[in-house]
Design a binder for these strands. Structure first.
Lengths: 74, 74
DNA sequence: CCTTAGAGTAACCTATAGGTGTCATTAAGG
DNA sequence: CCTTAATGACACCTATAGGTTACTCTAAGG
């Protein structure tokens, strides 16, 4: 029903040379939250999306993007 | 703990002259979801935030923004 | 070899997102 | 006046976000 959600968190982490724990601490969530979001296990709340994007100083759209159905099955 | 979330959905709806039902239908959620998000009753998922922003052709940050603690208590 | 850091995952739990339906209120129109 | 559209709000329900703790595995270093 809902499209899937792609994320580039690990890329931004790599650029900033920080671990999942570092980012988790920086934005005030658990490491598990960062890990499971990265792996795509669940869709984060808008607050977390804004915090992550804000932390990396990029728009939300650069971190998270909707995967259209065609792309999903591609 | 988490900052609050501000939204300008009703402003964008006004500009596009559409009702909550119209928007709900357009992005594939219930009217109640739009209504409760607008009123600030809960924080939507990143997927819904992206869909709404995408629908109005603006970045997520123009529709949703974090309310910092100082602003909250102001 | 051992230790440590980084990451994935699993079980478990609680809070809440988001669906349903229904009702009350308001504004606009016949 | 009655009807209809738009919105807010309620009860109720299910799925899942996101927390904790702990285990596993890998890579890097001593």
């Amino acid at each position: 029903m809902h499209p899937k959600l792609d994320n580039r968190i690990r890329v931004f982490r790599a650029e900033h040379r920080m671990s999942q724990s570092d980012l988790a601490e920086a934005i005030g969530v658990s490491r598990k939250t960062i890990s499971t979001i990265e792996v795509g296990k669940f869709v984060p709340s808008t607050i977390i999306a804004l915090k992550i994007a804000d932390y990396f100083n990029v728009p939300v759209e650069e971190v998270f993007s909707l995967i259209k159905d065609e792309e999903e099955t591609a």
